[in-house]
Design a protein around this nucleic acid. Structure first.
Lengths: 197, 197
DNA sequence: GGTGCAGTTCAAGCGGTCTTGAACTATATG
DNA sequence: CATATAGTTCAAGACCGCTTGAACTGCACC
């Protein structure tokens, strides 16, 4: 969790040559951004994906890649990849302002959808494979013959357990969808609907 | 190094140059054991913790550390540490047979409890911290003054979201507890009651 | 064309985790 | 006590994913 290292510090002298636009995160922003980063990391994503989304969301208006790079102290290449991931997942949106020549990126409000989506995907592929493996093991054990029946039984139970865990997981996803949809509504009400395109 | 031969499909165990030197593990066992290893890794534990538990569970009778070492092709030290972890979590039991001089380890049936327990723990400390961070960010933002009100609003919403996600998570834990308790009963019925001491 | 900036790609490096293997302790046995 | 075997500890190193930074493409304007 290196993110917490620089929440206190970051005392780099403001570069006089840097573009005048606030080159640096406010402390409260840094904390919030890192908090989201930690959550997102917890869910199996990259910490910086969460930080980027959080920054965009907090700012409320689209930023350029360069701005993100400066604010979060990331590398150019890194920002590019992070933005691509986030865009692919539909949690940020790439916009080009009429008179402008550069892309800007704005946060969609449903980070949750991304988490849910990837969890679903992971779960789908992963749990399917586990079940397939256990089924295969069972098949092999039967074919091999001379496997004590109590061991076969235990194998069977293992498969049962896997199925139940899978069910619980699906239920969770459904649940969270329901529970969170209310929050999303809240998000949409606010004064943050300035997504020009 | 360690012959995790789980690379590539496992349709047939005829992996040409697989290091099957120790080879006591039947192919179906290897698959099942690895499947559990994957699940457990998915939940944030060490893969080999899952493999050890699975082996002990499938065998149904307590094994010595040396046997585990050979069957799973692990190092002496590694097995020692893995067993200690598992025992601490209460998912295996250390037993000493009457006439014997060495410790043996037997699987408890509730791997699920361990997973749930650790999830709960992680969740507790972790989510608490996130909430604290967001609260702190809010405080700082207010103190700092001159923060645009719409940004403050968004920060607020972020905290709300965090709370909802937390609720969903708690619900999941409760759910899985309910859903899985049925399975545990199934486990307990079977012919696997071997707790000699 | 040439210059400059935005954006992408990817090999190399970094940092964190897991495993190993040897040194060590503990315990039983002759 | 000497020996042997079981079990523990931990520094060193393997391993693996993330980030970096430089080379590259693409585009706009002069």
């Amino acid at each position: 969790m290196k993110g917490y290292l620089w929440t206190g510090g970051h005392g780099s002298p403001s570069n006089p040559d840097a573009p005048v636009i606030e080159g640096r995160l406010a402390p409260w922003e840094a904390i919030a951004v890192d908090a989201v980063g930690n959550v997102i990391e917890f869910w199996g994503f990259k910490r910086n994906q969460g930080r980027v989304w959080a920054l965009l969301y907090l700012r409320g208006e689209p930023l350029t890649a360069g701005e993100i790079e400066r604010e979060l102290d990331l590398s150019k290449g890194g920002v590019s990849m992070l933005l691509r991931d986030l865009e692919r997942w539909g949690v940020i949106q790439r916009v080009r302002l009429p008179q402008d020549t550069v892309w800007r990126y704005g946060a969609e409000t449903d980070l949750v959808r991304m988490v849910r989506h990837v969890i679903e995907e992971r779960e789908a592929g992963f749990v399917a494979r586990i079940r397939a493996d256990l089924a295969e093991a069972r098949r092999l054990a039967e074919v091999a013959g001379q496997v004590p029946s109590d061991r076969l039984e235990r194998l069977e139970k293992m498969a049962t357990l896997a199925e139940h865990v899978e069910r619980a997981l699906r239920l969770f996803i459904k649940t969270s969808r329901l529970d969170v949809s209310g929050v999303l509504a809240v998000f949409r009400d606010g004064a943050s609907r300035r997504n020009e395109r």
